[in-house]
Design a protein around this nucleic acid. Structure first.
Lengths: 338, 338
DNA sequence: GGGAAAATGTGGAACGTTCCACTTTCCGCA
DNA sequence: TGCGGAAAGTGGAACGTTCCACATTTTCCC
């Protein structure tokens, strides 16, 4: 006794399978009487349309493939929110695959998505080599999220890191800070742009001579090391712009250890506005990326391609915004004794 | 020029489509010569097997459906790790759906998974009414994760909250604490069990008379309110067991505000061991749930059913473990002045 | 009242695989 | 040399839908 098919319903209701198909899809030209009868029989039998068979004959799956390098990163969770919302609104379903940051399993996950005949691919920070991605993009519209691309076949959606860094610097400068240092993100995604954004913004505010960048990483440890470097020699800054929230938290810890008050003596600004930043205990001023919006945009880009509206690639940069919390304030009037 | 099918490959290679099928699936009885020829043609044509067609004829999709109430909760990310690892090992793929904690969209997401003919369903904390879940379980093996069930058709995997609470109390008691209070999780999932576990453990340690439970919630705010209640009247506790990590962090904030030192004056223990707890700045002693293991178990339960090994329901309780960090220590020798 | 048009309903081909029953070829050995 | 069985390969039915071309019935209007 396997699952009932459309034919079972048709027989039992005394109509053709075509009619049942029509009813199940809510077609207009069906008499109320038959519609009701079919519906009744279908529900009595526990009939459920088989999306597999439908996809085969229609030559479309209505499925978008989402590939994630890392489910743990809360950043992506919010991007997916946007993806799913937009996809649902436009009549698409979403299937998610991950690869644990191992090239081989990433490749397998990608193959799976392709074999399932997803109609579009959203790749969030894959570590896959560009060659593989380009191959995939030949089969199906592909958009890269949070990883910039200059490819002409692959669309991309990213946040404008340069602008975000400028936001952070602008905020600190307008509070009156001059010695604003940057703990950078090493070779992390977007770290270079943030660094450059910082330098340019310092320049624009006439603070080029005060600019100071120390090596860090997108980790707590990175922020911690950065503070060590900054406060061990030279004139101490009154504000620190860390490459991301995690580094900012490391910065906070290191400053606390050295008995330096935040924000009374030193202001700290992060980047990403992760859930961590919002925790009361931390309450970090940071730069927010419009994550759900990025997801929605990614879906839109794919649908533009699917609808044949566009052949060439689009690379979208989303504007970040500043979230002011408790770790930034005006600099101390007096020189801070070290 | 649509995608090449198995027939295109067959024609071009001068063999039957059956042979191509055999080659693509790596069947043994194929001559090296033809195998190679087929493979060459397939790759030249960019042929990729169509999983949709295969699923239709084989009557199996090799797909497991995972339903998540909330992608943001890092808890689930780790459960999914386990699910995906185990599923991959056993030859299944995974498709994830979410419902934003809205009953209607949860129902839709569930329907989608079912229509795609997933062979099993893993539901992580759905808010869906039990009736709907029972219905689904009639179509396909279903397991509930992190939501206990007594149903005889639906398997479940949860953490043993009672045991976890006992772990927390035992840890504090062995440090020498006697006045151990509990800030509870209101009507959150598992909150009742944690409360009961706390009470029983206090009893077992001969501390029944010192037991004190105040109302809280699974939020920072909940922890904050709990501290207010605990320290505004009556004899202040020397240790607090909060219902989860978020509440524990709220507790930490509130204690800091009142100038109470942790762990010198008061010890704090949380529950869940979220990433938050590991942050240096917080460094919370907490109870860990074996999340990946829970995911793996969920998959195993489904496969047991699929393999027909089992008809009746199994309800698995996983043992939690204690993670000691910096917020717990021996109680102060002297009475703490309030 | 008659005919066109609209509404309603139907049968069969097609989608791209897998699998079964079958044929052909090859090899070893009595 | 002949024969049996293994190895290699093939054709066609089947999976559960959708869609097209077509048939039948009803409605509408002059």
């Amino acid at each position: 006794m396997s699952r009932p098919t459309i034919v079972d319903v048709a027989k039992r209701a005394g109509v053709s399978k075509s009619l049942v198909s029509l009813v199940m899809r809510g077609a207009p030209n069906v008499s109320d009487e038959k519609r009701e009868r079919v519906l009744r029989v279908a529900s009595a039998l526990g009939y459920r349309p088989n999306a597999v068979a439908r996809s085969l004959v229609r030559q479309r799956t209505n499925l978008l493939g989402v590939f994630l390098s890392d489910l743990h990163n809360p950043f992506f969770a919010e991007v997916i929110d946007g993806i799913q919302a937009e996809a649902a609104e436009r009549g698409y379903r979403t299937i998610i695959g991950t690869g644990d940051r191992v090239e081989l399993s990433e490749a397998r996950a990608l193959d799976t998505l392709l074999e399932l005949r997803t109609e579009g691919l959203i790749l969030a920070s894959p570590i896959l080599p560009m060659r593989r991605i380009a191959e995939a993009s030949r089969e199906v519209p592909t958009v890269l999220v949070a990883r910039a691309s200059r490819s002409s076949t692959i669309d991309s959606v990213a946040n404008d890191d340069t602008a975000g860094a400028a936001l952070a610097v602008g905020h600190l400068a307008s509070l009156g800070h001059r010695r604003i240092a940057h703990i950078d993100g090493g070779d992390g995604a977007g770290a270079r742009e943030r660094r450059r954004g910082y330098e340019r913004a310092m320049d624009r505010h006439g603070l080029a001579r005060e600019a100071r960048v120390v090596a860090g990483a997108y980790t707590e440890e990175g922020g911690w090391q950065g503070v060590r470097a900054l406060f061990s020699r030279g004139r101490a800054p009154t504000a620190v712009f860390a490459a991301n929230d995690l580094a900012a938290i490391g910065t906070l810890s290191a400053l606390a250890e050295q008995g330096i008050g935040v924000p009374e003596e030193v202001s700290v600004v992060g980047y990403d506005n992760t859930a961590l930043a919002a925790v009361h205990h931390i309450h970090l001023t940071t730069v927010d990326q419009p994550r759900p919006e990025m997801g929605r945009t990614a879906v839109s880009l794919i649908l533009e391609r699917l609808d044949g509206e566009r052949g060439s690639a689009r690379h979208v940069l989303m504007p970040p915004s500043l979230v002011v919390r408790g770790t930034s304030g005006a600099p101390a009037r007096k020189k801070v004794p070290r």
